[in-house]
Design a protein around this nucleic acid. Sequence first.
DNA 1: AAAACTGACAACCGCTGGTCC
DNA 2: AGGACCAGCGGTTGTCAGTTT
Length: 266
Amino acid sequence: MDVYKTSFISKSEKEMDVKKGPWTEEEDSMLKAYVNIHGEGRWNSVARLSGLRRTGKSCRLRWLNYMRPEIKRGNISLEEQLLILELHSRWGNRWSKIAQHLPGRTDNEIKNYWRTRVQKQAKQMKCDVNSKRFKDAMRSVWIPRLIERIRASCQSTTGQPSTITGIMTESESVQVDPSPLPELSVTSPDSHVSSVLDLTDCYKPQSVSNYEAAGTWGGDDGVLEFQETEEHSNGWSVGGGGESSMETMWNEENIWFLQQQLHDED
DNA sequence: AAAACTGACAACCGCTGGTCC
DNA sequence: AGGACCAGCGGTTGTCAGTTT
């Protein structure tokens, strides 16, 4: 493999002592200045001609994942989470393809989100992220909850019921549509709803379940959190000692379904 | 107060496929 | 046809700030 490796390292990369690691502000401004003048592309030329002692790859990555003007910073919104879950269920780890449908988000960012948040849930459920159990839980609980929270959030900010168009108009029956792409849009003037206060403050529980709660929403990012407890070893209970009103978010139907899924596995 | 741990994200690496000469 | 180069993808690792012990 060494043959391969050396054959694809460009001359410029071999000749200069290449810098690695975090980019400095000076490097960023050099890259920005160069791209502003010459445009994107020809990344090895960028590396060579801009004066940066970086590989073309590194320049490209820095620009695409961090410096592009259209890059969106901050939390992944609920709508974006919903799209990621949905699109991943369809395409798997096709991060760049998924990223094409989330304007301003990079494949790297989505990949990181998946690895840190979604895989964490799977781990807490003690199952594989690709297992049927986790996918069922995701489709039957997580996604409907996201939709519900998006609606709740939009109602609280606009006073109007939100309109989520596309395949996910019914929270209780989320199915993966094999054909056209979901045109997910939420008619809210400010669709950035993932912050802590937005999420927790706007949601008003509507019913109290007679069932054990199957999980709860993380306070800071809208991520579903599962926590197995000794007293509820057959299922999943609310984390944080059950003090959160979030437990009442779980309607009977979803919780029943999740418990069925979990019991079926045993 | 400090060490250990954790999570989030930036960056790198290995590899593939396309294009050009 | 085949080698060199390039852009892009997905997996992995490194870094650092925040949290816990």
